Amino acid sequence: MTETIHPMNITIFGATGKVGQALVREALNRGHDITAVVRDASRLKIEHERLHVVEGNLLDPATVERNAKGREAVISAYGPKPGEEEELLEAARSLIEGVRRSGTKRLLVVGGAGSLLTDDGTRLMDTPSFPEEWFPLAAAHADAYVIYSRSDLDWTYLSPAAALEDGPRSGNFRIGIDRLITDELGSSRITIADLAAALVDELEDPYFVRSRFTVGY
């Protein structure tokens, strides 16, 4: 007999991106109540009686505080536009400050894969095959991860596989900590839907509190 999960009140930042929308759908499908904080409400095409859409700026700690207050958890799926990678650091600081002020302790963040370790102990972003144009974003994600890891919140940081793909939700994936997960052919991949499933699994049944984890096939 499976344990019944208590429905939670959750705030999600970055809900209009592909990962954010997948998280909203996954959490709604599991019976949770969602407040989605977005810059432009017209970009979120999901409608549900348990979804409340609020316009606000993640980079403003007061906005974070207001929308995190009274919630059981805050999730960030925020990703910056190309050329604005440094906003990731500003977003990390704003989230930590605002969530702390709100009295909510649980913060879950979808980050980057670049700082995961390959088999020889090298960070993925430092390997010769890592695309040069992705390096600024990977470096910003790595710096943001350090900021989260030094906070006093009950944070969890989810690094995806190297390739984040469109595709179905299988619910069948492997979980790791700091090492990139690859298949027998050396490929590292996960669908956005399964990434969302993994994060909501962690939300409902916390295991990686104050730590990072990763998922892949």
Rank of each mutant, 00 (worst) to 15 (best):
L23M: 12
R100N: 07
P160W: 00
I177A: 10
T214G: 07
E90T: 12
L89N: 13
P61H: 15
R210I: 10
Y78E: 08
G171L: 15
S188H: 01
P168F: 08
H32Y: 04
L199E: 02
A198Q: 01
A163Y: 08
S151L: 11
V99I: 07
A138M: 10
Y148W: 13
G216H: 03
R100G: 06
L59D: 05
I34W: 03
I190Y: 03
A92M: 08
S187M: 11
I177M: 12
T156W: 09
L153N: 10
A91C: 07
T104F: 02
R43E: 04
N29K: 15
E49F: 04
L116D: 03
V53M: 10
T122I: 11
A41S: 14
A27H: 06
G114P: 10
P206V: 15
A77R: 11
D33I: 11
F208C: 07
G121N: 01
H48F: 14
W155Y: 12
F173Y: 12
L164I: 15
E49N: 07
A113R: 11
D143W: 11
T104V: 07
L199K: 09
A138K: 08
V53G: 02
N67A: 03
R106N: 10
D205T: 14
I175T: 09
G114W: 00
R30E: 05
V37D: 08
A144V: 12
F213P: 15
E55H: 05
E49Q: 09
G20P: 10
G103I: 07
A27M: 01
S188F: 00
P61Q: 09
I34P: 03
V54L: 02
S76M: 12
T156H: 12
D178T: 10
A77W: 07
S151V: 07
I192S: 01
V146P: 08
I96Y: 04
L88K: 13
D152P: 04
R39G: 05
T214W: 05
I10L: 10
P7C: 06
A163E: 11
T11Y: 01
R43V: 13
S115M: 05
A91Y: 14
F213D: 04
A193E: 12
G31Y: 00
A163D: 08
R123Q: 09
A193T: 10
D154H: 08
Y148N: 05
E65R: 06
S151N: 03
V37N: 06
D60G: 00
D183Q: 09
E87K: 15
E133K: 13
E26F: 03
V200E: 00
A142P: 13
V37L: 13
E132D: 07
D166H: 06
P168R: 14
G56K: 13
R43D: 07
A68R: 00
R150D: 02
N29Y: 10
R212V: 09
L51Y: 09
G79V: 15
V37Y: 11
T118F: 09
A142R: 15
E87P: 08
P131N: 09
V53R: 04
F173C: 12
E133Y: 02
F130K: 14
T182P: 00
R169I: 08
V209F: 00
R66W: 05
G216S: 02
R179A: 02
N172T: 15
K45N: 08
P131Y: 05
